[in-house]
């Protein structure tokens, strides 16, 4: 591991000021960053520990939503009674991720910014455009069985691995950010980027910007929601494909819905086309399947990951059918 300096500021302003230079990274739970430093994938010269400056509290907003501090641990967020009752899809997504030990360490901010699990990215002896821009993408022609089927590029076919982020794009969460240029709010989807010709950048954040909180909007329909994660190992495994879904049905007709997919793209994927196709349609399995097909028309699977298309389709249909069946 490259030797590094370690700072632990007490205020957001101090943290942002210390993160000014190049080669500086924020450290939260460390469950992803420290792993990648040990592998030599990330070699920051300075770590700014933000666990004292980012809020670890969950507050109700005047508008009926929740403001979740970036320092809230994944295990605390999933256990929060209001998260469980108002946003079951988020509580379930968090619970489906990693292991109990990791969730106790992992923070909301760090979870959003965790890096891809593409094996070439994690091995510094191999080329990878995301880690070493311009070196190439061996996954495209190599092992991409668990990588993207939607909106990948010739430069990168990686997926974003977070479960929590899938729920957050379904909810349309707002990410509160603070940087040298001041504070701003970034809506989800919109935080994460597609790879395009610069896969080295996972998000729209500029270096030194600190996530301070994530705001969950008031969304009554999310009270009837779920998260379903398909994977070979029954726990402690990233998704093959996952779905976060919320459904509001009135007199057999879909009033509103939210659908997002995990592990299909470089970003947590909001299935906007499927949602549009469903609003106003009868709440039947046939319609759910039609909507899923409309969404997945844009899939461009690679030789080894074609299975993700039927898997995503089946997951969407099953999630919606299960939600429709809830009385």
């Amino acid at each position: 591991m490259r030797p590094f300096a370690y700072h632990r500021p007490e205020t957001v302003a101090a943290a942002v000021a210390q993160a000014g230079g190049a080669d500086v990274m924020y450290l939260a739970g460390g469950t992803n960053l420290v792993d990648l430093m040990r592998l030599g994938v990330l070699t920051p010269a300075t770590l700014v520990d933000v666990t004292r400056v980012t809020s670890a509290t969950i507050e109700q907003t005047p508008g009926g939503g929740l403001l979740v501090g970036a320092g809230v641990r994944n295990s605390d967020l999933t256990a929060h009674p209001l998260v469980r009752s108002r946003y079951p899809l988020l509580a379930e997504a968090l619970l489906a991720g990693a292991s109990g030990q990791l969730r106790n360490m992992a923070t909301v901010g760090g979870n959003l910014l965790q890096r891809t699990r593409c094996s070439y990215f994690q091995d510094v002896t191999k080329p990878c455009n995301k880690r070493d821009p311009g070196s190439g993408c061996p996954a495209r022609t190599g092992d991409h069985r668990n990588l993207a089927i939607i909106e990948h590029s010739e430069h990168c076919v990686a997926t974003h691995p977070s479960d929590m982020a899938v729920a957050l794009v379904a909810l349309g969460a707002l990410v509160h950010v603070e940087g040298a240029a001041g504070a701003r709010q970034v809506p989800m989807p919109g935080l994460h980027r597609l790879p395009g010709d610069d896969p080295s950048r996972d998000t729209v954040l500029v270096p030194g910007e600190l996530i301070t909180a994530v705001e969950l909007p008031a969304l009554p329909l999310a009270a009837r929601s779920l998260y379903r994660k398909a994977r070979d190992r029954a726990s402690f495994s990233f998704a093959a494909v996952s779905v976060a879904a919320a459904l509001q049905v009135e007199q057999g007709v879909v009033r509103d819905c939210r659908i997002a997919l995990g592990s299909v793209a470089h970003v947590p994927w909001r299935a906007g086309r499927a949602e549009d196709a469903l609003r106003g349609a009868p709440a039947t399995e046939q319609e759910f399947a039609r909507a899923a097909d409309i969404e997945l028309e844009q899939a461009r699977p690679l030789p080894l990951n074609g299975y993700k298309v039927p898997l995503a389709r089946n997951l969407i249909v099953r999630a919606l059918a299960d939600l429709a069946a809830v009385r």
Binding site: S119, D123, A234, S235
Partner: peptide
């Protein structure tokens, strides 16, 4: 390629 226990899967308790 999958040289760690996050990538080389061994049955977990849930399995």
């Amino acid at each position: 390629l999958n040289c760690d226990l996050a990538q080389y899967h061994i049955a977990a308790h849930a399995d």
